[in-house]
Amino acid sequence: MDDKEKIDDINKLIDSELINFTRELDNVKSLSELESIKTKYTGKKSFLTVTLRNIGSLPGQLRPIIGNKSNAARKKIEADILKKEQILKGVEYEKKLREENIDLSLPGRGIKAGKKNIISSVIEEIEEIFIGMGFEIAEGPEVETDYYNFEALNTPADHPARSLHDTFFVSDRVLLRTHTSPVQIRYMEKNKPPIFIIVPGKVYRRDYDVTHTPMFTQIEGLVVDKGINFGNLKWTIETFAYEIFGKKRKVRFRPHYFPFTEPSAEVDVSCNICGGKGCRSCSGSGWLEILGAGMVDPNLYKFVGYDPEEVSGFAFGMGIERICMLKYGIDDLRLFFENDLRFIDQF
């Protein structure tokens, strides 16, 4: 056998060893199988180890050729095994993780969320709408003087409109405010136009039955500036109503009477239950009253030292409980102050 034949012979053996290795490696499914293949192909008794160990017995000119070939094969085998080992380890780790089973459907450790009162939530919602239109929030005392609550609002002592406000008195001149409107006067006394404010707060009337509570909540609005007109009032109220009740509702302005606005209006939105056709909720009219509004009566400006020829403005006021009732379908006013958590926690 000449050298060439010998080389061919050994090369063939190495190649077939590699083919066998590759085939067997493909079938390996576990690290222990991999271990036995590792021993078989790289162990002391493996073909390549034996070949390399016996390389000295080969003729000198053949040694480098066979040596290189064997080493290359061995390196490939070792690399393949390492690669396979990493794959198998990943699979087995994953398998181990899979055994860590928990019931995802068990309830979490409790963090109970409390609920803001529906009145506060709706006030804040309304505040945000008006802040977006450039309004600020003003506040005033709940115990008021007759002057701010009535007189400066164009409602002198014997005015018929006073009979609509049954009032709680602290003394002859001091009372619980019957509306948030006194803040209009207080604010105008301290500020100059332009005025864009809303005023949330509690108000009190001496009335206690199914549809009246002695205390309830209002939001008042006041805008005074040069060039403010009835069209501005309509725009502001419509924008508000669409925001809070949805764009699909219709809004209508109906003439009304308030002592401190002229012209005055009551504002209705179309009934959401019947869509304006008329049903029990809207007593057949198709409309639900949401607020009162109007152009500030020029007399008021005299009380606060504005020139009624120069500035004009509008005001509006609404009952928050009513807005809540319309928005959430609440049918009993008394629920708001009974503080039953079964009610409060619904919102």
């Binding site: 969320a113 409390g114 609920k115 803001k116 509570t213 205390m215 708001f336 409060i344």
Partner: peptide
């Protein structure tokens, strides 16, 4: 509210 309290409103 975030500490789990709910808000009530009582007559004055």
């Amino acid at each position: 509210c975030d500490t789990g309290l709910s808000e009530v409103i009582n007559y004055s």
